[in-house]
Design a protein around this nucleic acid. Sequence first.
DNA 1: CCGGGCGTACCCCCGGAGGGGTAGCCGGAC
DNA 2: GTCCGGCTACCCCTCCGGGGGTACGCCCGG
Lengths: 230, 230
Amino acid sequence: MTAPLRVLIVDDDDLMRAGLRAVLSSDETIQVVDEAADGAQAVTRVREARPDVVLMDVRMPRLDGIAATREITATASQARILILTTFEDEDYIFGALHAGASGFLLKRTRPEQLIAAIHAVAEGDSLLSPSVTRTVIERMARSPQPDPAGGRRLRSLTPREREVLELVARGLANAEIAATLVVEESTVKTHLKRIMAKLELRDRVQAVILAYETGLVRPGEAPVRGVPRP
Amino acid sequence: MTAPLRVLIVDDDDLMRAGLRAVLSSDETIQVVDEAADGAQAVTRVREARPDVVLMDVRMPRLDGIAATREITATASQARILILTTFEDEDYIFGALHAGASGFLLKRTRPEQLIAAIHAVAEGDSLLSPSVTRTVIERMARSPQPDPAGGRRLRSLTPREREVLELVARGLANAEIAATLVVEESTVKTHLKRIMAKLELRDRVQAVILAYETGLVRPGEAPVRGVPRP
DNA sequence: CCGGGCGTACCCCCGGAGGGGTAGCCGGAC
DNA sequence: GTCCGGCTACCCCTCCGGGGGTACGCCCGG
């Protein structure tokens, strides 16, 4: 048997922390190494106690569980974070998952399942409460993106043309694209003319839109070029 | 006790269908009402047999399970669809979820869990195999979207300016925006000037990018205006 | 009552974008 | 060998987009 899993409990409610500690101490494969009463404490305690798994509440003073999760996963910490909350709020769920949480459980989860979940996330697995799973799936179903039909349109472009289109969608002017690809601006213009003709676009703006709609570029991939220089 | 759950088995492999039928028939709360050997059959059988739950394979001739799922959920069918496949392919997973599947299980799932899963999806819950959950969560963590920081930038715009920005991001030319808002084009230009000054953007292309990056508009929301008219 | 934000509207000016057409060069297909 | 697709590169010309500045009515808040 390996060493017990090191767990950090984060919750602003004293009773809840005590309860969790009691539940977890019944399992000899788990060792509660420390507690924190808010997100800010959690961040420092993680650094000090180096837990394997963090049980994280969401609603807390000072720094909420989502922000704390973001902090912790942003640092090189190996700690896996398991959100444990009463509220099945959509913003919480997606906020936590984007922040890098490995799981999202509701506090109504039964003790045995909580223990199983801690082991699961420690192993690298992820898990969600069933109703949370449902919410996540519904969101995915609602926002279908990488439009396969649009992708088909893009396939009529040559590799070079796709490359130009992508740079257009990054906000570059023709001269900048030319510099990037090390060709003349006139060449870029020629490519662009063909692109717009093939895709039946009116101007580069519609080209940018198509690039986003087809998933050629995606939100979050490209920092908006801050070039206020005219 | 209510009537047994009506289940349709869809798999191109005869043995697999037989096996599933055997497993499910051991449970008296489940009634296998029909089978289909490919996606096209599945679509028609769903119409005829009106199952509560469809166990759907992915890799099949004629019409694959993803496409069949899309067909079925697109119609008014109440059938809930549970994907059951050997392959943990990312495209399969996200394709299926976008197509409206209620769950995604691997064929290595144990019989009891499969039966439990069928009941769960029939109840309206959703569920994923643990490793699939992991994949889904990782994808969410990788693509954080409705950028809250970007949203903050947008808040410096007046309502009217946001409205103009959105139309710009839909690919409209200034004159078209003017017509849409029933104002003069010169007014649109004035708004646009202020927008670009406030957000430190160089041209409307960067405005479109910012609109997508901040979630003011999202892929899939706006059909690309097909206006090849010059 | 008066300042200021907002929405509206114009002016002049010019540079980049986009339409149309032409052309050389290269590599692979036939 | 020949032909075609892809990449490169120009020319000319038009016009929309964007910079800078001004202005006026409206409504809200101090």
